[in-house]
Every structure is written in C-alpha cells, then in structure tokens.
C-alpha cells in the first residue's frame, strides 16, 4: 500500500539539485533532474551515514559530499568507489504544484 507524503513545493528544489527531507524518523533525498523530473532516494550514503543532500547533482548522478561516492539517483545504483551498496529509491509524483514521495 503506498503512502504518499508531501515533501515541498515543486519550485523549492532547483533544477539539477537536491534537498533533504526528514519524515517520521527517516531521512530522504529528493531530486529535480535537469529534465525537470523528480526523484527520491534514501537520504544517507551507503558508505558512511552522510546526508547526500549536501552533495552535488550532475545530470543523473548524486555525488556524496564526504568522499565523492556516486549514485544514480534515478535507479539508486552505486557508480563506483568508495560506494558499492545501492541506494533505495522511492516513487515520486508532482500534484498541484507539490512534490510527494511514496514511502
């Protein structure tokens, strides 16, 4: 059963950028791609528990701010050293100008 949670207004995230979203004791990272699509992953890097939202978004990659581990935020796939464990991803929808994630 999907549980849609409102994150923010669609404009609150810049294009090719990311924000941190905390909900119910969990933390997520929510992205807006250069093609203006929205994505969501777990908020913490799988190498050490570092908030990915402080990292840099480039195309479909989020780069961890701590040691530059890379993930595809679209698929969650770990893209090379030092990260090797994938990120979990979550469905996202934009409705009435707001971003929602399903968790």
């Amino acid at each position: 059963m999907s549980n849609w949670v409102e994150v923010c207004a669609a404009d609150d995230i810049d294009e090719e950028d990311v924000i941190r979203f905390d909900h119910d004791g969990r933390t997520f990272a929510v992205y807006r791609s250069p093609e203006d699509q929205y994505f969501a992953t777990d908020g913490l890097c799988t190498h050490e528990k570092i908030h990915l939202a402080d990292g840099l978004v480039m195309d479909d990659i989020i780069e961890c701010p701590k040691h530059n581990g890379r993930f595809s935020y679209k698929t969650g796939e770990a893209k090379g050293a030092p990260v090797c464990v994938n990120l979990k991803t979550y469905p996202v929808k934009v409705d009435g100008g707001s971003v929602f994630i399903s968790i």
Partner: peptide, 11 residues
C-alpha cells in the same frame, strides 16, 4: 561544520 564546504569545493 559537517559538509558545509563540500559542494563548493567540488565545483
């Protein structure tokens, strides 16, 4: 503090 400088250093 934390990763305050990370993004700009990367850029």
């Amino acid at each position: 503090k934390g990763n305050a400088v990370a993004r700009d250093i990367r850029l």
